[in-house]
Design a protein around this nucleic acid. Structure first.
Length: 503
RNA sequence: GCCCCCAUCGUCUAGAGGACCAGGACAUCACCCUUUCAAGGUGGAGACAGGGGUUCGAAUCCCCUUGGGGGCACCA
C-alpha cells in the first residue's frame, strides 16, 4: 500500500463568511502534509448551519485556495469517489447514523426547549458555573417512551451519552496525550431539531466515510476532541490520527486573529481576509512561504524557501504547539524579497492592475520601462502608485517651492542651477540614462557643487517630491519634452517664490 | 467560574541534559555604499516568566505559582 492510499487529509471550512488567514494556514498545512506524503487533499464544505450560511463564502473560498496554489484532489468542482462533498447533500447519512446511535443506546432523544439549555445565567443556581450546560434531564427517559414521543412528532434533538465517570484520553501528534475527566463533558447535541447534524456528528461521520487518515485542525478544537473520541467509540470506528495546529494570534499577541480588519499605524486597513491580502498586493508565493512559517520551521536558519522545498521538508514533527502572532512586518519583508526576485516582465504584469485601478491609462510596455526603477523599492504591489504617479499625470500636483531648494542653497542659486540643467538637458543626445547622467555630473562639476545639490532641484521639478525613483532613469522615461516643461514650471514657481520673499 | 492548551530577544523561532557566557530571521540602532528613497554590506543592543526539585551538570526532565491563549451553543 502506498502513501497515496493511506494519507488522506481534508480542509473542511464552513461557508459562513470570507476565508481569513487563519483558515488559509490550516488549509496550507493540510495541503503540505498531503503533498509531502503523496497523499490526497480533500476539500469538504461543512454547510450545516443554515442560519449563518453566506452565499459569498464558497466562491471566495475556492478563489482564495487557488490563489495560494492549493489544489484539492477531491471536493467541489473536481468530484471524487467519496462525495458528495457538501454536507448539506449528505443529511440523510447523518440522520441514519444518529438513529443508529440511539438504537445502540449511545445516544438519546432530548425534548428540552433550547431556552432551558446553554447560557450560564439561564441555568439553575445549583448548576451555575458547572462545566456542563445541559443537565441531562432527558437522558433518563425510557427509550421506548422517547421513541413514541418522536413518532407522534414531538420535536427533539439527539444527544451523545458521554460516560459519566472516568476519563477520555487521545493522542495529539503535536502535543502528546491529552486527558480529560468525563465528568467535565457535556452530552453534546448530534442532530438538531431541524434534522441537520451538528459539526460533531457530521465531521466524525464524514471523516470516517471519506477515509480521512489525519486530522489537522485548529487549536480551538482541542476542547471538543474528547467527545469526538467517544463518538468514534460509539460507532466502533477507528479514529484518524489527530493534530491540533497552533492558533494564529493577532499581531499584538492578544487574542486570535479576529475577522475584523485592523488598522495599521500608517492608517491603512490591515488585511485579514485572504482576498484582502491579494488586493493589498501580496504575492501568493510570499504568502505561502510566510504562512508555512507560522508554527512550523525547517531548521534554525532557513526561512526563504520555494514551494517545492517546503513540500519536501514539511513534517508534522516540526510543527510547534505555541500560538503565534501574525507579523505583518515580516510578511512585508518576505513580499519584498519575492518582488525583487520577479522578472521585470512578470512584475509588470502583476503591477498593471494596480496602476490601472488608479485610473491611469498605462500600457504594459510603458510600465515595463519604469518597473526596474521601483522594483527594489516596493514591498507590496499596491505601493506602486505612490512611486509612479508623476509618470502618468498630465499636470504635476502642486508642491511647495521650498522643496526645490537644497539645504545650503537659496532660491537664486537654485534657479541658476535649474536653468543650467535645462540647457544641458535640452542638448544632450541621446536622451538616455547614461548620457543624462554624464551631462548632469559634468554640469555639477562646472557649477562647483556636490551632485546632490544639483540633482535635488531637478528631481523635485520633475517628480514634485524629494523621495522618488532614481533620477536619470526617470528622466529618460519621461522624455525630454516633459522634463523641460516641468523644469520651466519649477523655474516659474521659484520666481514666484522669490518675488513673494522680496515683497 | 470550570476545563484544556501553551510559555526562549518587541515578534517568529533554533534548542529534544553537557557542543549555549543561548543561534537565526523580522523590527530597531550605528556605520559603509550612495543623486533622494530603497536594496545591499558590516556591526550593536536585545530572551531562557518566577520558585522549588531531579542530576556531577537544566533553556532542555518533574512540581507549584504567574502569565498568555483556547473552549464551555440545536455555530463551526
Amino acid at each position: 500500500m502506498d502513501a497515496a492510499d493511506t494519507v488522506r487529509v481534508r480542509f473542511a471550512p464552513s461557508p459562513t463568511g470570507l476565508l481569513h488567514v487563519g483558515g488559509l494556514r490550516t488549509a496550507l498545512f493540510n495541503w503540505l502534509f498531503a503533498r509531502h506524503c503523496g497523499g490526497r487533499f480533500i476539500l469538504r464544505i461543512e454547510d450545516t448551519d443554515r442560519k449563518r450560511y453566506d452565499p459569498r463564502a464558497l466562491p471566495d473560498l475556492l478563489e482564495s485556495l487557488r490563489w495560494l496554489g492549493l489544489d484539492w484532489d477531491e471536493g467541489p468542482e473536481v468530484g471524487g469517489d467519496y462525495g458528495p462533498y457538501f454536507q448539506s447533500q449528505r443529511i440523510h447519512l447523518y440522520q441514519e447514523y444518529a438513529r443508529q446511535l440511539v438504537e445502540s443506546g449511545a445516544a438519546y432523544y432530548c425534548f428540552c426547549a433550547p431556552e432551558r439549555q446553554g447560557a450560564d445565567d439561564a441555568r439553575p443556581e445549583s448548576r451555575r458555573g458547572a462545566a456542563t450546560g445541559y443537565d441531562r434531564r432527558c437522558r433518563w427517559i425510557d427509550p421506548h417512551l422517547a421513541a413514541e414521543r418522536v413518532a407522534i412528532g414531538e420535536a427533539a434533538v439527539i444527544r451523545l451519552k458521554m460516560p459519566l465517570e472516568g476519563h477520555t484520553t487521545f493522542h495529539d501528534l503535536i502535543r502528546g496525550d491529552i486527558t480529560v475527566e468525563n465528568s467535565t463533558q457535556d452530552d453534546v447535541v448530534l442532530l438538531k431539531s431541524d434534522g441537520y447534524p451538528t459539526y460533531h456528528l457530521a465531521n466524525v461521520v464524514d471523516d470516517h466515510l471519506m477515509r480521512i487518515s489525519h486530522i489537522l485542525r485548529a487549536d480551538e478544537w482541542i476542547a471538543t476532541a474528547p467527545r469526538h473520541v467517544q463518538l468514534y467509540k460509539a460507532f466502533g470506528w477507528q479514529m484518524p490520527a489527530i493534530a491540533h495546529l497552533p492558533v494564529v494570534l493577532d499581531p499584538s499577541g492578544k487574542g486570535k486573529m479576529s475577522k475584523r480588519k485592523k488598522i495599521a499605524p500608517d492608517g491603512r486597513a490591515l488585511p485579514v481576509h485572504v482576498r484582502d491580502f491579494r488586493e493589498a498586493g501580496y504575492l501568493p508565493e510570499a504568502m505561502f512561504n510566510y504562512l508555512a512559517l507560522i508554527g512550523w520551521r525547517y531548521d534554525a536558519h532557513t526561512e526563504l524557501m520555494t514551494r517545492q522545498e517546503i513540500i519536501e521538508r514539511f513534517t508534522i514533527e516540526r510543527i510547534n504547539p505555541t500560538a503565534a502572532a501574525f507579523d505583518y512586518q515580516k510578511l512585508d519583508y518576505f513580499n519584498g524579497v519575492y518582488i525583487r526576485q520577479l522578472s521585470v516582465d512578470d512584475l509588470t504584469d502583476r503591477l498593471l492592475p494596480f496602476v490601472q485601478r488608479k485610473g491611469w491609462q498605462v500600457e504594459h510596455e510603458t510600465l515595463r520601462r519604469i518597473v526596474p526603477l521601483i522594483q527594489e523599492r516596493i514591498e507590496r504591489l499596491d505601493q506602486v502608485t505612490e512611486w509612479v504617479d508623476f509618470f502618468f499625470v498630465e499636470q504635476l500636483p502642486d508642491y511647495d517651492a521650498q522643496l526645490l531648494i537644497p539645504k545650503q542653497a537659496d532660491a537664486a542659486a537654485t534657479r541658476h542651477r535649474l536653468q543650467r540643467a535645462r540647457e544641458v538637458l535640452a542638448q544632450v543626445e541621446p536622451f538616455t540614462h547614461d548620457a543624462i547622467e554624464h551631462a548632469l555630473r559634468t554640469l555639477a562639476g562646472q557649477l562647483g557643487v556636490k551632485t546632490g545639490q544639483l540633482f535635488q532641484p531637478v528631481r523635485v521639478a520633475v517628480c514634485a517630491r524629494t523621495v522618488a525613483p532614481p533620477l536619470f532613469g526617470s528622466l529618460e522615461v519621461l522624455g525630454r519634452e516633459r522634463v523641460l516643461q516641468r523644469i520651466d514650471q519649477a523655474l516659474a514657481k521659484l520666481s514666484g517664490a522669490s518675488q513673494q520673499a522680496a515683497q
